[in-house]
C-alpha cells in the first residue's frame, strides 16, 4: 500500500507536468485529439440513428391497412390543395423572373442543400446541439446554416468526417440578425441563444428591439432572418417573438424579447444544411481560429 502511495505521488506529479504541457501544446494537437475521439464515436452514433430509423420503419410497417388507407386519403386531400397552390405559385414565379430581368437583379448567395438525418440531441445550459449524420465527406462546412422547411434550425459549428455538430438557435453560441414581423422600419435586431433555462423549453434572447416596436394586433409575431449577414438566406422563420417587459429597462432605448423557436426543433428527424457555394470570410476566419 505504501508503494501505492508513492506511486500515486509520482502520478500526481506526472499529471501536473502533463497538464502544464497540455496547456502550452499547440492547438492543432488538441484539435487532433478532439477529432480523433469524435471519429471514434461516429460509428456508434450512426448505428444508433440508423437503428432508430429501422425501428420507425417497422413501426410504420406494422400499421393496419385501414390506417394506411385513411392516411392515404388525407394525403390525397393535402396533395390536391398543394397542387392548386403550386399552380398559383407558377404565375408568381414567372412574374418574379420577369421583374428580375427588368431590374437585372442577380440572385445573391447560392447554396448547395444537403439533407441530413439527426443522430442525437444534446443540450445543457451552455449548449444546445444536435449531431447530424452528414459530415465533411458530404461537403458540409462549418458555419453553414441549417434549416428545416422554411424555419431555421441553427448553424453547423463543427464538422467531422461523417458527422457534424449543429448549434441550435437557442444555443448560447448562436448569433444572428433578424427582422421582426410588424416592424415597418425593418430595424435589425440581434438574436442570441439564451443560457441557463432549466426545465423550460429553450429560448433565445432578442435584443436591440427599437423602443417604438409593438406587436400590435399580431398574436405572436414572427422573427425572420435578414439575409444581410451573408450566412442565412432572407425570410427564413426563426421563431415567434415575446416582448419581455421585465428584461426591458424602463426608459431605455431598446426593448428586449424572447424568441420561441418552432416546436419541431426538438423533434426533428431530418434537416437540410445549406452549404454556401462560395466560402464566406467568416468561415475563413474560423479555420484560422483557435476556437473549435
Amino acid at each position: 500500500m505504501d508503494q501505492n502511495r508513492r506511486g500515486a505521488r509520482a502520478s500526481y506529479v506526472a499529471l501536473t507536468i502533463f497538464l502544464a504541457v497540455w496547456i502550452f501544446m499547440p492547438s492543432t494537437v488538441r484539435r487532433f485529439n478532439r477529432e480523433a475521439f469524435t471519429e471514434f464515436q461516429a460509428p456508434g452514433l450512426h448505428l444508433v440513428s440508423k437503428s432508430r430509423d429501422l425501428a420507425r420503419f417497422w413501426e410504420l410497417k406494422s400499421r393496419s391497412s385501414e390506417e394506411m388507407a385513411l392516411a392515404g386519403r388525407d394525403l390525397a386531400r393535402v396533395n390536391a390543395a398543394l397542387e392548386l397552390k403550386l399552380a398559383s405559385l407558377d404565375d408568381v414565379r414567372r412574374e418574379n423572373t420577369r421583374l428580375r430581368e427588368i431590374t437585372r437583379y442577380t440572385v445573391p448567395a447560392d447554396y448547395m442543400s444537403v439533407v441530413a438525418r439527426v443522430a442525437t440531441r444534446d443540450s445543457s445550459s451552455w449548449w444546445n446541439r444536435i449531431v447530424i449524420r452528414k459530415g465533411r465527406n458530404d461537403g458540409i462546412r462549418p458555419g453553414a446554416p441549417v434549416i428545416f422547411g422554411n424555419s431555421v434550425v441553427g448553424r453547423v459549428t463543427a464538422v467531422h468526417l461523417t458527422t457534424s455538430e449543429v448549434d441550435l438557435v437557442t444555443s448560447p453560441g448562436f448569433r444572428c440578425t433578424a427582422f421582426l414581423e410588424g416592424d415597418d422600419q425593418n430595424s435589425i435586431v440581434l438574436i442570441n441563444g439564451l443560457a441557463g433555462n432549466s426545465l423550460r423549453t429553450p429560448q433565445a434572447r432578442i435584443s436591440v428591439i427599437p423602443n417604438d416596436y409593438s406587436t400590435g394586433t399580431l398574436q405572436s409575431p414572427k422573427a425572420f432572418t435578414t439575409g444581410m449577414g451573408g450566412v442565412f438566406p432572407s425570410r427564413l422563420v426563426l421563431g415567434t417573438v415575446d416582448l419581455d417587459s421585465k428584461a426591458t429597462k424602463p426608459g431605455s432605448s431598446f426593448k428586449e424579447g424572447r424568441l420561441n423557436p418552432s416546436r419541431e426543433l426538438y423533434n426533428l428527424q431530418e434537416v437540410s444544411v445549406l452549404v454556401p457555394l462560395h466560402q464566406n470570410p467568416g468561415e475563413a476566419l474560423l479555420q484560422g481560429d483557435q476556437f473549435q
Binding site: 458555419g143 448560447p172 453560441g173 448562436f174 448569433r175 444572428c176 440578425t177 435589425i188 440581434l190 435584443s207 436591440v208 435578414t226 444581410m228 449577414g229 451573408g230 450566412v231 442565412f232 432605448s253 431598446f254 464566406n280 470570410p281 467568416g282 468561415e283 476566419l285 474560423l286 481560429d289 476556437f291
Partner: peptide, 24 residues
C-alpha cells in the same frame, strides 16, 4: 450600413474577447 453590422454579427466568432455593443 446595416449589411456591415449583419455581417459582423453572423460571421464573426461569437466566443472571444471581441464584443458587440449597441447604443443610441
Amino acid at each position: 450600413g446595416m449589411k456591415a453590422v449583419a455581417r459582423f454579427i453572423e460571421q464573426f466568432p461569437v466566443d472571444g474577447p471581441i464584443r458587440l455593443e449597441s447604443d443610441i
